[in-house]
């Protein structure tokens, strides 16, 4: 399993799919978020690994 975190919400999903597909699966638009793994930006084309914790940052913010 892998975990996705966005704002104050968390989702547990089966690993083995791309982060992009996982983002779509939880109902978000991949254009509107950036995925971080251990605080580092990663491409959404990466495959989610077992025990991955992916934090999603909203692209629109501030200003």
């Amino acid at each position: 399993m892998m975990k996705l975190i966005y704002r104050d919400k968390e989702w547990e999903l089966a690993h083995g799919m791309t982060i992009r597909d996982a983002i779509i699966k939880i109902g978000l638009n991949p254009e509107a978020v950036l995925p971080l793994r251990q605080g580092k930006l990663i491409s959404e084309d990466n495959i989610g690994q077992e025990n991955d914790v992916i934090t999603l940052i909203a692209v629109v913010s501030g200003g």
Partner: peptide
Amino acid sequence: YERETAAYALVRGIDYIYDEC
């Protein structure tokens, strides 16, 4: 794209205000 400016800020370690007005 806004996605690129956000990514740039993250990668450059710029500490910006995350909340919207």
